[in-house]
């Protein structure tokens, strides 16, 4: 599924790297907030889920028990903001016993060397 042509080209989009799981902290929520606002300002945004950030995409998350909003409703809004390039680290999935079948959104899975290429191709990135 990897769009390797896209990786190789220099890219004006803001790359936001999400490395934290949902619920336990607000890193994920406040990272996605930056993604949505950036997109609302007309700038292209791509997301890379690395490390525990892949748990953001895990299916069957709920909000009720914790009295928190959760981040999955936010993720469902990505398409509305034209944020459609979602990259996921293969290492992160494998180390957690997950596959793309466990995820709530369609993603492109990247090998280690492709992750380095993705970073190199983006002029600006933020990590949350």
């Amino acid at each position: 599924m990897t769009d390797s042509h896209h990786l190789a080209t220099c890219n004006d989009a803001l790359l936001i790297v999400l490395r934290h799981p949902p619920h336990g902290s607000s890193w994920l929520r406040e990272g996605i907030d930056v993604a949505l606002v950036t997109a609302a300002f007309g700038r292209e945004v791509e997301l890379l889920f690395q490390g525990d950030g892949v748990f953001a995409l895990l299916e069957n998350q709920t909000t009720g028990a914790l009295g928190q909003k959760g981040t999955h409703p936010q993720l469902m809004m990505l398409e509305m903001y034209d944020i459609e390039r979602l990259w996921v680290s293969r290492t992160a999935l494998t180390e957690r016993g997950l596959t793309t079948d466990d995820l709530m959104l369609p993603v492109s899975v990247l090998d280690s060397d492709e992750i380095a290429a993705l970073h190199a191709a983006h002029a600006s990135s933020l990590i949350f």
Binding site: Q50, S89, T91, I115, A116, H119
Partner: peptide, 12 residues
């Protein structure tokens, strides 16, 4: 450890 692995993975 995971953080350091992710950094090394991202370095070109």
């Amino acid at each position: 450890r995971g953080l350091f692995d992710d950094v090394v993975e991202a370095i070109s």
